[in-house]
Amino acid sequence: MRQLLAGFEVSQALYVIAELGVATELLDGPRSVEDLAKATNADRDALGRIIRFLTPLGVFRTLDGRVEVTDLGRTLADGPVHSLRAAARYLMETHYVPFSGLLHTARTGKTGANEILGKPFFDWVTESPRLSGLQNAAMAGGGRVSLGDLLDVYQIPAGQTIADIGGADGWLLAELLTRAPERKGIVFDLPNIVAGASEVLTAAGLDKRASVVAGDFFDSIPTADVYLMSVVLHDWDDAAAVRILRNIAKAAAPGARLVLMEMVMPEDDGAHFTKTIDLVMLTLFGGRERTQAEWRRLLADGGFRLDRVVSGSGVISAIEATLS
């Protein structure tokens, strides 16, 4: 129990390693603590003690007085395919303090983040260019890890134009359009969030096939043949999620298809990452993770029929639906 209670200490120590770039500095091989401290502009004694704390947890190894990063620790470095460095920085800078509102949530059922921040979480994030940038980077990096091989085992339904609703910087749409050169796309999100999408699409050579549209999916949504939403609806309670779905249904071309890339909550008592994320949704956003039956009901209320669920090696599944 003492180890469980010290979880916040672990998360803060990992954040320091991510923010300072310690794991990145170790990608080329072991280095002394003194060398690492100089390279990361850190205090030698403090950094050494943080590394010592994380070493028994499998993040580092020490060899002849030098520090080596493990495969686990490499996930906090820039560069590796499964890097979570951006996620570590985003979580600690945006989730840590609002999570102190969990007791308020437990007592009232209301979102703890609103109580602590004085406003909805996303409003607070979008006011800061730094936090907005961290959020986009975290969603892109964490999203790739969560998808696993889903984009290899799942084929997006036919349709000329794919609209990525809540698409942030457009990394997922860029990936899909690269795999489907005959298609076009739209990245749609709030102005501050979608600001970096043009750069991402241009870098992928897609500026002629994809456009960036700023807006609010609670107001209106662009017309498309296929709608994609990746880990968007879990941020919202059922009433808000249904409102988003109905706006899509209103804007959709005849015969439009919808693909939700979301987690599907298992109904047993076993450990599952979705249960961790559900606590985040409860505390920060008022959203929730959903079972397959709950997804079916939600989609029906929003004007769609669930057709199938496809899973890959990651925690995200493709929930495919048809406009009913």
Rank of each mutant, 00 (worst) to 15 (best):
G196H: 07
L173T: 03
N192L: 10
A168D: 14
A204S: 10
V194F: 01
D149R: 04
G167M: 01
R209Y: 08
R183F: 12
S128Q: 11
I156V: 15
V200F: 00
V194P: 00
G143Q: 08
K208F: 10
V145T: 13
A210V: 00
L176D: 11
V200N: 03
A137R: 06
I156H: 09
E175W: 08
G148M: 03
I186Y: 05
M139N: 08
T126Y: 14
A203G: 12
N136G: 03
D207T: 05
K208L: 12
A210R: 00
I186K: 07
P181L: 10
A195E: 11
A163K: 03
L176H: 05
D149M: 04
I156R: 08
G170V: 03
D164E: 07
T126C: 13
G159F: 05
L172R: 05
L206Y: 02
P181R: 12
V212A: 00
F188Y: 14
P191N: 02
G205W: 11
I186P: 04
I193T: 10
F188T: 02
S146H: 14
L177K: 13
R179T: 11
Q135C: 14
L150Y: 07
Q160N: 11
Q135S: 15
G148T: 03
M139D: 06
Q155S: 14
G170Y: 00
L176Y: 07
D169N: 15
N192T: 13
P157T: 07
A210D: 02
L177I: 09
R183V: 10
R183S: 06
Y154L: 08
V194Q: 04
G166D: 06
A168N: 13
R130I: 15
G196S: 10
T178Y: 11
R179N: 14
L177N: 04
L134S: 00
A137L: 05
A163L: 02
G185M: 09
D152W: 09
F188D: 03
L151S: 14
V200K: 01
V187G: 01
K208V: 09
L150H: 01
Y154C: 08
P129E: 09
A140V: 11
S132A: 15
A168R: 14
P129A: 04
V194R: 01
